[in-house]
Simulated assay, not measured.
Amino acid sequence: MTDACGGHVLFLNWRDTKHPEGGGSELFLERVAAELISLGYRVTLLCQAHGTAPAREITPEGMRIVRRGGRHTVYLMAALTYLMGALGFGPLSRRGLGRPDLIIDVGNGMPFLSKLYARRPVIALVHHVHREQWPVVFGPRVARIGWWIESRLAVRVYRNCSYITVSESTREELVGLGVDRHRINVVHNGTPEVTGRAVARTPYPSLMVLGRLVPHKRVEFALRATALLATELPDVELVVAGQGWWDEPLIQLAADLCIEDRVQFTGFVSEERKHELLCGSWLMLMPSLKEGWGLTIVEAGARGTPAVAFRSAGGVADAMVDGETGVLVENEYDFYLRVRELLLDARRRTAMGAAATTHARRFTWEKAGEAFAEVVAGQLPAIRTAPADQRVP
């Protein structure tokens, strides 16, 4: 790979990793941005403001963050901030950054459509297609508008742009929407190396769900499965690790199912606590409606914990080897049956866990960053290059 030096890359994303609802998309951005910085690029992230987070910040890795607008206005503020900076005033210009050489436009359902106003190369970063999620999160009218923007308008706006996505499943969906296959680059998520101390499995059947508590994650499926399992396995327990605005309905459902004593809602967990939970759990459950990748599946696999997820959920099929490192299911009843089978079959569960550990080693953030940088470098042929031994430390 040729190491680029000196280019300025602007990421447009609705959130950063410090946002209360930040997740895998934001982690992916942060990690590949760190790789770009190590190669000599200057990197800025423009995202929505939240809480007490400063309007401008520089991360320890050197990424500049500019926070503007709210949940729905960040898209307009991104355009205004870019245009103001291009005219010689505004946050980007005042930081001495000027116009970026390249824009990474991250579409989490709603794209920034930066190609309409930015006279710079644009790469569209799409983690997954939101066809199924629009009606779950919004009413039917808003869902139709949102899906039209994502599936029709965005495809036309970015018709001459390169794409990056995180799984073969999403690439196929984008092709189905009319994006040329040759313009789509797949860059898998990485998985941090496991460095924590070894933690023994719980002596009782234990399940875990890890992620944001929002409707399309369908944590309800895990709760209902736990209630059914409890009739046969009286000591089964479920840990729901994560936070989100859908927490109260989930807590109420656990009460309605009379399993409050079997379900632990942890809220946000530290990396150390997450490691302990992933090591101790017998199975990782991912009942999500749609995922661009299966980051928690691979994180669990790195600790020898197999997963159960839905085949229709997209990228999870790329993060798992069905039948070897975990199981993909077809519907909610099938979900319950496969979870039950694995809880009762220690030999198969252990073998799957060992295979999952081996599989997880294929995915590193170093590989992800290098692959991402290759795509970026291909869009900036005019940027001066430097030998590999001249990376910025």
Results as ranks from 00 to 15, higher is better:
residue 179 V to L: 00
residue 210 L to H: 09
residue 166 V to E: 04
residue 149 I to T: 12
residue 191 T to Y: 02
residue 177 L to V: 01
residue 206 S to V: 04
residue 225 A to G: 01
residue 191 T to P: 00
residue 183 R to L: 05
residue 146 G to L: 10
residue 197 R to I: 06
residue 188 H to V: 00
residue 142 V to A: 15
residue 174 L to N: 02
residue 160 N to L: 03
residue 173 E to S: 13
residue 165 T to M: 03
residue 191 T to V: 15
residue 158 Y to V: 03
residue 174 L to D: 02
residue 163 Y to R: 06
residue 142 V to E: 10
residue 144 R to K: 14
residue 173 E to F: 04
residue 207 L to V: 15
residue 172 E to V: 02
residue 145 I to A: 14
residue 161 C to L: 05
residue 224 R to K: 15
residue 176 G to S: 06
residue 211 G to D: 04
residue 150 E to M: 09
residue 189 N to I: 02
residue 180 D to E: 13
residue 231 T to K: 15
residue 145 I to M: 13
residue 159 R to L: 00
residue 236 V to R: 05
residue 193 E to N: 11
residue 153 L to C: 06
residue 161 C to A: 15
residue 156 R to E: 11
residue 165 T to Y: 02
residue 189 N to R: 03
residue 229 L to R: 10
residue 150 E to A: 09
residue 201 R to Q: 09
residue 169 S to H: 11
residue 185 N to Y: 07
residue 159 R to A: 06
residue 142 V to S: 13
residue 201 R to L: 11
residue 165 T to Q: 04
residue 206 S to N: 08
residue 146 G to D: 03
residue 178 G to C: 11
residue 167 S to C: 04
residue 151 S to E: 03
residue 221 F to D: 15
residue 230 A to T: 05
residue 182 H to E: 12
residue 154 A to F: 03
residue 173 E to A: 14
residue 217 K to P: 05
residue 185 N to P: 00
residue 232 E to H: 10
residue 157 V to N: 12
residue 157 V to M: 10
residue 176 G to Y: 06
residue 182 H to S: 12
residue 174 L to H: 02
residue 166 V to F: 04
residue 149 I to M: 15
residue 222 A to P: 01
residue 229 L to G: 10
residue 226 T to D: 06
residue 160 N to H: 13
